[in-house]
Simulated assay, not measured.
Amino acid sequence: MRTSRLSFLAPALAVTVALTMTACSSSDSSDSEAEGATVSTIFGDVTVPENPQRVVALGWSDAETALALGVQPVGASDWLAVGGDGLGPWVEESYDTAPTILGTYEVDIESVAALRPDLILWTRSTNDQATYDKLSELAPTVGAPVGTDIAYGTTWEGQTELVAEALGTQDEGQALIDETNADFDAAVAANPEFADKTVAIGTLYSGQLGAYVDGDARVDFMTKLGFVNSPVIQDQAEAGKFAIDLSAENVAQLDADLTIMFPIFQSADTITSDPSIQGLPVARDGRLVVLGDQNLSNSFSAGSAAGTRYAIENAVPLFAAPLKG
């Protein structure tokens, strides 16, 4: 069974970087690269090369987004720890040549430099300025879209738009966005009972309870279906953070019209056998959905167009069942 390495506390993790960079960056070997589009990000405008050939995709789901748009990165980060080429089973495309797999939360600048990138994608990340500055010395680096105010807060739609703009594949990107939104529209039409229901999305990792807030990909997914994030959870949101910790005494705060939970670094039975969670009214009434299937919880967390479409097809029926009639 594949093991997820999603880190609930990613915003608080320090992103460490090597202090010494190799001398062979793409700026040494591609002085004659034609300039392409100018892309606006939270770090300012970035001029990217036309038809980049050596794309390094570091941000969460950046690699699968580039691949969906017809570009095969030479380096990629395996955010969901699915192994191999770092692509989940919801990704239809495949690599001709598997990319070099790089770290996730800790960006190894020397390893990135060794790939001689002419474009770096870092659209869904910590948004750390110091790391961005080091990456941008190697090659034009596309960070999160303008207006992103939390770590890993880039939406699937914003990521698709930004990556498509950087790669010069805007038509393909818009088509992917339209297809995904059509799936959402169909799900909303089929499930009118979702409208204005409260939802709490929680996790259990190493014995620690947590819940997600607006701006997180999972919460955005549910609000797009018509749900409202639980006010008792949302009111505790902290600036720049996509989640909160909950003490065991506050487990009742996970109660909502619908509660969704999944485990990190452990099996689903840590949730299904937890008496405090199973004693919640939402659990007793059968409105607690535990995503024990690793592929399903990963796709729900991926924050990509492909992962989102997979979750619409496979997770939405699970969310709908407890709320039907």
Rank of each mutant, 00 (worst) to 15 (best):
residue 5 R to C: 07
residue 13 L to N: 06
residue 16 T to Y: 09
residue 17 V to S: 10
residue 18 A to E: 14
residue 23 A to H: 11
residue 34 A to F: 05
residue 38 T to P: 08
residue 39 V to W: 03
residue 40 S to E: 14
residue 42 I to V: 15
residue 44 G to V: 08
residue 45 D to R: 13
residue 50 E to F: 08
residue 52 P to Q: 06
residue 60 W to N: 05
residue 62 D to F: 11
residue 63 A to I: 08
residue 68 A to Q: 14
residue 70 G to M: 11
residue 73 P to W: 07
residue 79 W to G: 10
residue 81 A to C: 09
residue 86 G to Q: 07
residue 89 P to L: 02
residue 93 E to P: 04
residue 100 T to V: 15
residue 101 I to W: 01
residue 105 Y to T: 07
residue 111 S to A: 15
residue 112 V to F: 04
residue 113 A to G: 05
residue 115 L to W: 09
residue 116 R to C: 10
residue 123 T to L: 10
residue 124 R to A: 13
residue 127 N to M: 15
residue 131 T to N: 08
residue 131 T to P: 08
residue 137 E to W: 11
residue 138 L to C: 12
residue 138 L to Q: 13
residue 138 L to R: 13
residue 141 T to W: 10
residue 142 V to L: 05
residue 147 G to M: 03
residue 148 T to S: 07
residue 151 A to Y: 04
residue 152 Y to Q: 00
residue 154 T to I: 01
residue 155 T to G: 14
residue 157 E to L: 13
residue 161 E to P: 03
residue 163 V to D: 02
residue 180 T to Y: 03
residue 190 A to E: 15
residue 191 N to H: 12
residue 192 P to W: 07
residue 195 A to F: 12
residue 197 K to I: 03
residue 197 K to M: 12
residue 204 L to H: 05
residue 204 L to F: 12
residue 210 G to P: 11
residue 210 G to V: 09
residue 213 V to H: 09
residue 213 V to R: 07
residue 216 D to A: 08
residue 220 D to Q: 12
residue 223 T to Y: 02
residue 224 K to F: 00
residue 225 L to N: 01
residue 230 S to G: 11
residue 231 P to I: 03
residue 231 P to K: 08
residue 232 V to F: 04
residue 238 E to R: 15
residue 241 K to L: 15
residue 241 K to S: 14
residue 243 A to F: 13
residue 243 A to G: 10
residue 245 D to K: 13
residue 247 S to G: 15
residue 248 A to M: 07
residue 253 Q to G: 05
residue 255 D to H: 06
residue 258 L to A: 02
residue 260 I to D: 02
residue 265 F to G: 04
residue 265 F to H: 12
residue 269 D to I: 03
residue 270 T to E: 13
residue 274 D to L: 12
residue 274 D to C: 10
residue 278 Q to V: 12
residue 279 G to W: 15
residue 280 L to H: 13
residue 283 A to R: 05
residue 285 D to I: 05
residue 285 D to P: 09
residue 293 D to Q: 12
residue 294 Q to C: 00
residue 298 N to H: 02
residue 299 S to K: 01
residue 302 A to W: 06
residue 316 V to Y: 08
residue 325 G to D: 14
